[in-house]
Design a binder for these strands. Structure first.
Lengths: 258, 258
DNA sequence: CGCCGAACCAGTTGCATATTGGTTCGGTCT
DNA sequence: AGACCGAACCAATATGCAACTGGTTCGGCG
């Protein structure tokens, strides 16, 4: 068929010659093919023409490229499912807060039921430290330790591992400035009070109260985060917020109908 | 009173002086304190004596050290990510069921709120497949796909990743024989009915009903697993069951959103 | 107008180097 | 003999730099 041909002759010949190279398996055993500059010189075409040909091949899925790494044969390797970087890149802060709202109240409840006296002692100690810490960095450090100690006290190693996973994503670089701005809001005193309430409930073995207190605390944290993110400041973390993911369990009454 | 003193005078004085430094917050804002060689020179003691003092402080949890990094104030930060193998090795089946009981009802609730019509269509399709499947292997396959589709429909990629993590542990080799024995109990028909109920609730957007139905389903699964594990058969999965971890949320009614 | 070479930008890798805590050794003083 | 010290070494980490990579822009040229 004679379709309109946007590519020039030389580009086209480059594509043909590249396809021939790939088909002949001229790079036997070699997953990686030469750098663009080298390859262009070998074939005897310009780098620009070569790149257009490579674009086609990449769109076809026959090769894949990555800046700084090179060009490789075969389909793009699947992402490691639990690779922290990948996961944190494609995870939105509000998603993380939703997950924390699902997990940490449960952790607090379990901690209230199963914490040892030693756990409770450590929690009380941490609460003091958090309150007495003056600078923001120190507060965040002790706060993190506090939440994790509760997770430990829950006595479920898998749930603890999940907590760590979420926490690692939360502490990723992208969030740094976000948290700095979030904690500028002077809610620190309220946070301290909420922490105290959670710990008290755990110490008194009141599972439901611990769960509820933790949920209220995290809801406040999320609202604070939300406020920061929707603030008129032009510097947004990420342009797109998937519509599905929008936080939706502030008051999750039953949805009837529609 | 003159208690036996294992430490020498100089070490002791080093410890006293170090404690003074930390209490006075001489390292305000600085999480990291000077290198051992420097610090020893500053205090005017030998490095060996300094190190003994640091050991005490580390045991007390006031500092933490790591080779090549340095010595830091505060509690030791969360440790490195746990690989799947490691995690799976020291995770007990009942722990996994407890985690599923925490996460999957929440997933069902979110799915009821945010599932697309396409999601629901797929769920209905899967329900048919699961019911019509005759052999046990096929049933398990469809069952797994069903649970994961619900997790997808929840629309939180991080929560989905966590679900996958748990699911991968659940499908680890150690569990194979356990599941074989568990499904020998003729509860399959009941499982199918429970699945149907969960899907119906999601399709009708009844978040609370979906959550509750999923919880009931998983509780039955866990009870079935528990029965198999405590059966008189000598082949136990793992010798030790930490007392803390014993399942303890059979009847904890939940209060979401107050 | 299309193409080319060249330069520049940005992400990645590797290596040499410096610094850290961890350890061992011999000398020295009490 | 035991406690201490300085020095050196070991191993893990951090850091900076050079050398690539693909991605992009620019001026020149036919």
């Amino acid at each position: 068929m004679v379709s309109p041909e946007p590519l020039s002759d030389s580009s086209n010949s480059a594509l043909v010659r590249l396809r021939a190279l790939l088909d002949e398996s001229s790079f036997d055993g070699e997953q990686r093919l030469p750098a663009e500059r080298v390859l262009a010189a070998q074939i005897g075409i310009g780098r620009r023409a070569l790149r257009r040909a490579l674009e086609v091949l990449e769109a076809e899925g026959r090769i894949w490229r990555h800046q700084g790494k090179g060009t490789f044969l075969g389909p793009r390797p699947a992402r490691a499912p639990t690779s922290l970087d990948e996961l944190s890149k494609r995870t939105h802060p509000l998603e993380v807060m939703d997950v924390r709202l699902e997990i940490e109240p449960a952790l607090a409840r379990l901690a209230a039921m199963r914490a040892t006296n030693g756990d409770i002692e450590r929690l009380l100690h941490l609460a003091e430290k958090t309150a007495s810490s003056s600078d923001a960095d120190g507060r965040e450090l002790w706060d993190s330790a506090l939440h994790r100690t509760i997770a430990e006290a829950a006595g479920n190693s898998l749930l603890l591992a999940i907590f760590d996973l979420v926490d690692r994503i939360r502490q990723d670089t992208t969030w740094r400035l976000l948290r700095e701005r979030a904690r500028s809001g002077n809610r620190q005193q309220l946070y301290v009070e909420q922490h105290r309430r959670v710990i008290a409930a755990i110490a008194q073995r009141e599972a439901h109260a611990a769960e509820q207190a933790m949920r209220e605390h995290l809801e406040l944290v999320r609202d604070s985060l939300l406020k920061v993110m929707t603030s008129p400041l032009p510097a947004r973390i990420d342009g797109e917020i998937p519509a599905k993911m929008m936080s939706a369990n502030t008051k999750n009454e039953r949805h009837h109908g529609t």
